[in-house]
């Protein structure tokens, strides 16, 4: 219990489920098919083995997740990670935040942005480009009908075109989904 992590971190964390993961040895053909297309075939994580209770969702969700975050062209990879961080800040998903803050640091190379978000959450004060993206993702995550034309205007002023805005909508919205699974079906724990 004492190993549960409550604060945002870039540490590599483990995830401890509240629901029993499926037993791979007993997996149905549908579960095996769904598990084959996840990124981690060698060692399947407890998280994915929990989601395998619903193989129909998992089978389409895994490739959708990869395309939204890694598909070629459009919004930069770092900016998509920032969209994921905006959602994870609102939803308080420590595990998702740790993964996507590390990814942001890989693509965005702006550790100061991560520091500011960890220190101030959704109240983080960022430069025009990062601020427009992070605030849009956070506002869409918090209360979708409250997002308005002014929020879209701010993204356009920051230089995003229509295709890039759609990519950001997808990455922010995707973490409305991922946070609700990761945070409610288990908890982040320190390794070791």
């Amino acid at each position: 219990m004492s190993k549960v992590v409550h604060d945002f971190t870039v540490e590599v964390l483990d995830w401890s489920p509240f629901v029993t993961p499926i037993d791979l040895a007993q997996a149905s053909p549908e579960q095996r098919t769904a598990l084959k297309i996840t990124p981690s075939n060698t060692k399947i994580s407890a998280y994915v083995l929990v989601l395998a209770h619903d193989p129909e969702s998992l089978e389409s969700r895994s490739p959708l997740f990869n395309i939204i975050m890694m598909g070629k062209g459009g919004l930069s990879r770092g900016d998509r990670e920032l969209g994921a961080m905006g959602a994870s800040a609102v939803n308080g998903c420590v595990y998702c935040m740790s993964v996507h803050a590390r990814n942001f640091n890989t693509f965005g190379k702006r550790p100061d942005v991560v520091q500011e978000i960890f220190a101030h959450g959704t109240k983080a004060t960022l430069d025009e480009h990062h601020g427009a993206i992070f605030d849009f993702a956070a506002r869409l995550s918090e209360n979708p009908p409250a997002v308005g034309a002014a929020d879209i205007g701010r993204l356009r002023n920051a230089g995003l075109n229509e295709e890039e805005i759609v990519d950001l909508i997808h990455s922010a919205a995707l973490f409305g989904w991922a946070n609700r699974l990761m945070h409610t079906l288990g908890e982040p724990v320190r390794k070791g």
Partner: peptide
Amino acid sequence: ERDIVALSELIAFLSYQFRVVRGLELLRGD
């Protein structure tokens, strides 16, 4: 447990879908 995961996927997917739809409503010019 399988129904708990299925219920969680239902809630989580729809949370995604509503946010995609809101973003697209705004791009439509609402």
